[in-house]
Design a protein around this nucleic acid. Structure first.
Lengths: 187, 187
DNA sequence: GAAATCTTTTTACAAATGATAAAAAATCAT
DNA sequence: ATGATTTTTTATCATTTGTAAAAAGATTTC
């Protein structure tokens, strides 16, 4: 469990006590490739840390799939909107590879936040990071076309390119797979 | 100052004490139409509540303008990314009408959050709302074309339509003004 | 290792959007 | 009010993107 403690202490330095309490609350789960970590219409009651693997957060509209974001090892994530509102989620989370996560319930998070202020700071920062990422995403979708968004993506996530299908990447970029194929061919 | 207290107490019910402290920290400013509430490259060190008026948060890329969001009376806002990171903002905030705001500095916000837990809850909720809005925006941009986004906008912000120029609306929707004009004509 | 399945690319065609220019309409300033 | 400015619409053409279907390539399964 060194990995997750290392990760969180880098964001908010916790006391030995807080570290122990945090560890206590964790549960480890492994999801085979292609299975759901969160299904649509479920309430997301957990925060996750990925020990290994890769996931996507996505939704469907009229058969078409759209991808909100990918999460890979050493990232913490949740389906924020459902986690915050405690309402059924429109989004689902699927393992793109066999994925092992540490999982902590919102209930435990809230208790830990009350008990240890640095843990409260940790989650507050995590939400901030998510917000910054979303603003960046919105800006990119406004100002850039598919080609530029693709180039940005490979510049910033080069390793992921080998692990994500081009169909998924297209659904993330907001273009069709055919268009993505054309973009790649144009190089 | 009834308006702002009413607004915040609806989100998080504050003690008489907290209400008073909050009021103390506020400063009122009026910005004429067309002027900047925040310029690009400035650090956004304030949270704002709009008593009256209308603003846009926007940025430019190669002469082209893009609009992140509009804020109207009885809304609280800040330029979140700069407010959180304390770095110069890429985004600017401009008054689209003469706009009167109550303004509270981040420094004061942080002090009030420490002193009054319901104020901490207030700001935490405000960030949550912003996050939910952003997720909705990203989903919409992925799954809907310009026409559907336009129809969504007028359904959800019908009153704003009279107050926003079609150019600004197009820059918000991520389409050209000519395309927006065509969408409107097609009805 | 061959068949079946899934992924990616290619092609042809149709539809949507963008760029540009110009006209029409609305708004603003004196 | 009237002329000037800004905003919105219209028209044309070029480009981009989408859809559908087929072909090629890669992977999985038995």
């Amino acid at each position: 469990m060194k990995d997750i403690l290392e990760f969180i202490n880098q964001i908010s330095s916790l006391s030995i006590d807080a570290n122990e309490d945090f560890l206590e609350a964790l549960e480890i789960k492994t999801y085979p490739k292609g299975t759901f970590i969160l299904k649509a219409d479920q309430v997301c009651r957990n925060y996750y840390f990925i020990k290994s693997g890769l996931t996507k957060s996505h939704f469907y509209k009229e058969e078409k799939e759209f991808i909100m974001t990918f999460f890979k090892e050493k990232m913490m994530f949740t389906e924020i909107s459902s986690y915050l509102t405690e309402k059924p989620s429109r989004y689902m989370i699927t393992a793109l590879e066999e994925t092992t996560v540490c999982c902590i319930s919102k209930k435990d998070v809230m208790e830990l936040c009350k008990k240890h202020h640095p843990i409260e700071a940790l989650f507050s920062k995590m939400f901030s990071f998510a917000t910054l990422n979303m603003m960046k995403r919105i800006s990119e979708m406004l100002e850039e076309n598919g080609t530029d968004r693709y180039n940005n993506f490979i510049r910033e996530n080069n390793e992921l390119l080998q692990r994500i299908s081009l169909g998924d990447l297209a659904n993330y970029l907001g273009i069709t797979q055919v268009t993505l194929s054309r973009i790649r061919a144009a190089k």
